[in-house]
Design a binder for these strands. Structure first.
Length: 256
DNA sequence: AAGATCAGCAACCGCCTGACC
DNA sequence: TGGTCAGGCGGTTGCTGATCT
């Protein structure tokens, strides 16, 4: 096809480039008041000289209230790697399993990561044991995030509840603090990044659980188990952040 | 202190798909 | 049934700021 979107091609003056705070404000307040019904009509209704597509993008990637900003935690990073291994470049699907992250954000993260990896590969293949050319560079940018940059003060998961439209597993309760009781209630949260909590909270006998609980986090075993366990990955599982910064994986749905 | 280099991020572009007429 | 439109997605580009030399 390749048609250009009418809303983007019209000669009408359409602003491009970075969004100003005023534009953000207009879009946010419009959506807060009227919700999203038709993106193509939003620019006009909100008094923006943008195309609907641009508005949608801005909202989805930046203005959505349930987005959390900031560095990816190690757990998130591990999960992204696992999901990418299983799902490929389906960023939207990956994003759907990472509450508070947009597909664009994940895609950017992955590309930056991948670029680094490729460079390192190139460097190591051409020079043998030489130090990766790119990694001597700052930003704590050691690959894997486990390197030099200070442990992500990172992404304290905010307790913002996941979007309402996300299917909740049986037994899910919105309040993460109630995770313990939730486990008992039916869903079985697998807590990564907090071994003690996981031991006490996750009774699930799945391989993912045990792999996750050992070594106190999402180590390779956990990831491998996740990837290998296709039913777990492709079945419905739900991930949520806890107040202590850990992540809970909820399983228990069995569709798809 | 200044220029070079790089990573991170925001946004655009082109294509695909489903809904509607 | 075919055409049009709008929403959504993945790939890519370009800007900005941090870091290094």
């Amino acid at each position: 096809m390749g048609r250009v979107h009418p809303c983007c091609s019209e000669e009408k003056k359409v602003r491009k480039g970075l969004w100003s705070p005023e534009e953000d404000e207009r879009l946010t307040s419009h959506i807060a008041r009227f919700g999203v019904s038709c993106w193509s009509s939003i620019p006009e209704l909100a008094g923006l000289q943008r195309c609907g597509k641009s508005c949608r993008l801005r909202w989805m990637n930046y203005l959505r209230p349930d987005l959390k900003r900031g560095r990816f935690s190690q757990q998130e990073e591990d999960l992204i790697i696992a999901l990418h291994k299983a799902l490929g470049n389906s960023w939207s699907q990956i994003a759907a399993r990472l509450p508070g992250r947009s597909d664009n954000e994940i895609k950017n993260f992955w590309n930056a990561r991948l670029r680094k990896k490729l460079r390192q590969k190139e460097a190591s293949s051409t020079t043998g044991s030489k130090e990766p050319a790119a990694s001597h560079h700052r930003r704590g940018g050691e690959d894997g995030g486990s390197g030099t940059h200070p442990p992500p003060p990172a992404v304290q998961f905010n307790p913002v509840p996941a979007p309402e439209d996300r299917p909740r597993p049986a037994g899910y309760v919105a309040d993460p603090a109630a995770a313990g009781s939730t486990a008992a209630a039916g869903g079985s949260p697998l807590v990564a990044g907090n071994a003690a909590a996981a031991e006490s909270v996750a009774p699930s006998p799945t391989s993912t659980t045990s792999a996750c609980t050992e070594a106190g986090g999402c180590d390779d075993g956990f990831l491998k188990a996740m990837v290998d366990d296709a039913s777990f990955l492709f079945g419905d599982f739900y991930l949520d952040g806890n107040q202590d910064g850990s992540i809970s994986f909820w399983e228990g749905h069995a569709f798809c």
